[in-house]
């Protein structure tokens, strides 16, 4: 049982490390800032989830595991919102964004017009 738990926790940690590595690689390799943001968001959500899950499984049912579970909840609540705000600002101010991707800004403007 102890071996199984260690194996599962090591597997989770390795998956998290793979996520973190690919995210760092993506941040340096990708060209446009939106795709870089996508790579960085991968680290904040999936990478941290796997790393913390590995730690939780290694710790077993204790108070610190509950705290790490809370950490996952808060990270998943906050960091996607941060990425969303950065992406939103990028779509607002990037001058040549239309050449890289297709933009549909009608939703935002319609919502503002209704207010």
């Amino acid at each position: 049982m102890e071996y199984v738990r260690f194996a599962v926790s090591a597997l989770c940690t390795l998956a998290g490390l793979f996520m973190v590595t690919s995210a760092i690689l993506g941040v340096y390799r990708l060209r446009s800032s939106l795709s870089r943001l996508h790579a960085a968001a991968l680290l904040d959500t999936l990478g941290m989830l796997f790393l913390l899950l590995g730690l939780i499984i290694a710790q077993g049912p204790r108070l610190i595991s509950l705290k790490m579970l809370l950490l996952i909840v808060f990270l998943w609540l906050t960091s996607p919102v941060g990425s969303h705000l950065i992406a939103r600002l990028e779509t607002m101010v990037h001058p040549d964004l239309g050449k890289e991707v297709q933009i549909d800004r009608t939703d935002m403007v319609r919502q503002l017009r209704e207010e």
Binding site: V81, L85, R88, L89, M92, V93, M108, Q111, L112, E115
Partner: peptide
Amino acid sequence: LYEPRHDPI
């Protein structure tokens, strides 16, 4: 639109 305050998320 630069202001984040109109952001429902």
